[in-house]
Design a protein around this nucleic acid. Structure first.
Length: 807
DNA sequence: GCAAGGTC
């Protein structure tokens, strides 16, 4: 029987072949693709003699794309992308792998799938099945389940083949489709909406700028922006604390106030003066304790990235590139792993033995192997296991290769030292805490001496600070050398470092170990964030504006929540609790509603962008600076004029020329057919002058008891105008949609067409809830900076009437 | 020109 075995990557195909064949009569030949070799040998599965062919793919064999007619950006309304047909296909650069599979599969009876034992691996398995079954319908499909590339696992797997798990593959199918539809629709929408409307100076050529949206990149950006806002809105607060020091023959001890600090100066001062009046200190407690500091858990990808960032200031992206090269050259194990505990079957001693000759850590490795040293300790279990790869560890000794860069040296050293640390005893420290009493107030000092460094001897990246404390005895009394009342101020947290960002992503489940660094890099590539010299991230104006815009809509599109919900659904699909179709339908339906609503609220994005960027005069953007007839000075911004204008639908309004910084607007009844500003001034509305407008109403659109001609005032005094606005509604597009449009989420305010004069500014044309002069309710800690204004979506529509696409 | 996930 001929058996085709397919692994997820060439290295696994090689390992599987070499383990199963025992390297006896193992033949290797080229496939059509340069990297994916074919191994052949004889083996017996459950007593059945087999001719084994082992080859590989390189990750996913297929991609998901929209059908051709939806691929061009202007081909369709982006909203259509939530339902447009998609197809899976093998891209150009994978065609040679596909051909190899087809050729080999034709002559085989069995197909054994050796893909990684995770959801993505299962999905790739079904891609391989699709390609192979298409040319050989008779293939028997079997799945090998293995947890590590070690002999026993591999032999066990092949003797205990199982069926491939469609639920796992379905979960990935759903994820792919959702990511594609959300990503493409929002990216096209916001790029086409904003790119040409503003001068975005960050990009060299902003015609090619893509303002991408993705369910991983946006939450990642969200972390950066949120921290930035936290810092911006921090208000320093002064606090007070009492410090005490005592110099003796043995040295100086610094005592901290047990109460920490007080924000109330008077309280602090009263207690301080009490202490100064009776300064004699009495030692109340002396505590001696042994403390252990444990070595870190075995190294996984996230830890590798975080530690390389902290110890060597390497970006996660660069770390993964260097790690990949070390892996390809055989020096370290597979670098993309979640696993941070070693399988019991791993021969840890052998890995240490290999390192004995190294000039830097060789002697430590020797000590570790000497039972007399007592240094060995079985490694901790970090609690993660992806069931596909072991923790990152050295696989080949090297004292440095000629082609290595400094970063190759550093990363190899980190992997080796981390491994040696993992199998070492914890550091032991002796801690002393001394408590004293001064006038009834308690103070403490602590010191630490390291008794045994153990793993810290080899893990030079970590230290365990501590100072020696002079000896004190209970009941001993002394007069402090200094006793001071000191002030300090609270400080905001620092900007997020790369390690912080990775922690946030890990905690919220954004991305995978293999992709997290990609999402971080994407923020930089898209000009959404920058990294400063101390490796900390700040949002750019562009990044902040986008998050601000969505935040103002009330949607948490930039929060990790969306991804978390998707992840839960994916899990349900993989467990068979929900079907792929069910999850796709509900998720996409929700996201489409969200998309349509975001588009309806695009003014929020415009406003947020306008805070940071100049409007451009390119097509598609700005059409609002055509002025109209002066009506009055704007009472809201008090800087610009309110003018009478018509929008492109012919509806009349009086809007502030200060838009978009000021969004004051008065919409006029939809029944107005003509309007002209007169030279007459209103006698009652202030601040004046407010010029009266001569209106002509469409006869059929107003009740018979109203005159078709009316000299009216928009200042708030005009009862006729108020009534007609209430009866006819306004020409605002949003108000027009409000009459029987699709249901909208509750958190989005709607304009009410039946409205009286606003209780705040006494104008007609908007509801009190939408008055541009009033702030919206409480929200995130975002600082209310510059000309960020309050809720006023109706007001703003006067300038942004153009839909990117009309549905 | 869009996503995120594999991997070379």
């Amino acid at each position: 029987m001929r058996v085709l075995n397919v692994a997820e990557k060439p290295s696994v195909a090689k390992s599987v072949a070499s383990i199963l064949s025992g390297n006896q009569n193992l033949r290797m030949r080229e496939g059509r693709s340069r990297y994916n070799k074919i191994y052949e040998f004889n083996y017996s599965i459950n007593g059945l003699p087999c001719h084994m062919l082992v080859t590989s793919v390189t990750g996913h064999l297929m991609e998901l794309e929209f059908e051709d007619r939806f691929r061009k950006w202007h081909a369709c309304d982006p909203a259509v992308l939530f339902t447009a047909p998609v197809r899976k296909f093998v891209p150009q650069d994978k065609l040679d792998i596909k051909r190899t599979l087809e050729e080999v599969a034709r002559g085989c009876q069995w197909l054994v799938l050796w893909l990684d034992c995770d959801r993505e691996g299962e999905n790739i398995a079904f891609e391989v099945i699709e390609v192979c079954s298409a040319v050989n319908r008779q293939l028997t499909l079997r799945r090998a389940r293995f947890s590590a590339l070690i002999e026993r696992d591999i032999h066990d797997a092949v003797q205990n083949l199982v069926n491939p798990n469609k639920c796992f593959a379905d979960a990935v199918d759903a994820r792919q489709e959702i990511d594609l539809r959300i990503g493409a629709s929002f990216t096209r929408f916001q790029t086409m909406l904003l790119r040409d409307a503003f001068v975005i100076e960050s990009a060299t050529n902003d015609r090619n700028l893509v303002l991408s949206y993705g369910p991983c990149q946006f939450p990642t950006l969200g972390f950066v922006v949120e921290r930035y806002w936290e810092i911006q809105s921090h208000e320093p607060e002064e606090f007070w604390t009492i410090n005490c020091s005592h110099r003796s023959d043995e040295g100086v001890a610094t005592f901290n106030w047990m109460r920490g600090h007080f924000f109330d100066y008077t309280c602090a001062v009263i207690i301080y003066e009490m202490c100064v009046e009776e300064p004699t200190a009495t030692v109340t407690t002396v505590r001696q304790q042994e403390k252990l500091k444990y070595a870190p858990a075995p190294l996984n990808t996230i830890q590798l990235e975080k530690r390389a960032s902290i110890y060597f200031r390497m970006s996660s992206e660069h770390t993964m590139k260097v790690a990949e090269e070390l892996y390809q050259a055989g020096f370290i194990s597979y670098p993309r792993t979640e696993t941070d505990s070693f399988s019991e079957r791993t021969n840890l001693h052998a890995i240490v033995q290999e390192q004995q000759g190294h000039p830097g850590w060789g002697s430590y490795a020797q000590r570790l192997l000497d039972p007399a040293s007592g240094l060995w300790r079985n490694p901790r279990n970090g609690g993660h296991d992806d069931k596909a790869h072991p923790p990152i560890h050295p696989t080949k000794f090297s004292s440095g290769e000629s082609g290595w860069s400094q970063d190759h040296h550093r990363l190899y050293e980190l992997v080796v030292r981390h491994f040696l640390a993992c199998v070492s005893q914890p550091a032991v420290g002796a801690e002393t805490t001394v408590e004293i009493d001064i006038a009834g107030e308690l103070f403490f000092a602590s010191g630490r001496v390291i008794v045994a460094k153990n793993y810290l001897d080899v893990y030079r990246f970590e230290s365990w600070g501590g100072s020696l404390l002079p000896t004190y005895e209970v009941g001993q009394q002394f007069v402090p050398t200094t006793l001071t009342l000191d002030s300090g101020v609270t400080r905001p947290p620092p900007l997020l470092s790369e390690a912080d960002l990775l922690s946030c992503m890990d905690k919220e489940g954004i991305g995978t170990d293999a992709t997290m660094h990609d999402h971080i890099k994407k923020l930089l590539d898209r000009f959404y964030a920058t990294k400063d010299s101390s490796m900390r991230f700040s949002p750019t104006n562009l990044g902040e504006a986008l998050v601000m815009g969505y935040d103002d809509m009330g949607y948490k599109l930039w929060k990790p929540y969306l991804r978390a919900v998707m992840e839960r659904d994916m899990k349900a699909v993989s467990e068979g609790a929900k079907s792929k179709a069910e999850v796709l339908e509900t998720c996409l339906q929700q996201m489409k509603a969200c998309f349509l609503d975001a588009r309806l609220n695009k003014v929020k994005l415009f406003e947020a962008m306008a805070v940071f960027f100049e409007r451009s005069n390119r097509s598609g953007g700005d059409e609002q600076h055509a002025s109209g007839e002066f009506v009055r000075r704007c009472g809201l911004c008090q800087e610009a004029d309110m003018v009478l204008r018509q929008n492109r639908d012919g509806n009349f309004m009086v809007g502030c020329l200060g838009f978009p910084q000021c969004r004051n607007v008065v919409w006029l009844p939809g029944s107005v057919s003509e309007a002209a500003v007169t030279t007459n001034v209103c006698n009652s509305c202030t601040p004046g002058p407010v010029y009266l407008i001569q209106f002509t109403f469409r006869r059929l659109e107003i009740p018979p008891d109203y005159s078709a001609n009316h000299l009216g005032c928009i200042g708030g005094c005009d009862e006729t105008l108020r009534q007609l606005t209430e009866i006819c509604g306004t020409g605002s597009r949003l108000s027009a949609r409000g009459r029987g449009g699709p249901a909208m989420p509750n958190n989005v305010q709607r304009s009410n067409t039946r409205q009286g004069a606003c209780i705040y500014c006494h104008q007609t044309g908007h509801s009190s809830g939408n008055c541009p002069s009033q702030s919206s309710g409480p929200r995130s800690s975002r600082p209310q900076s510059m000309n960020v204004q309050s809720d006023g979506r109706i007001a703003s529509t006067m300038e942004i009437e153009e839909e990117v696409f009309s549905v």
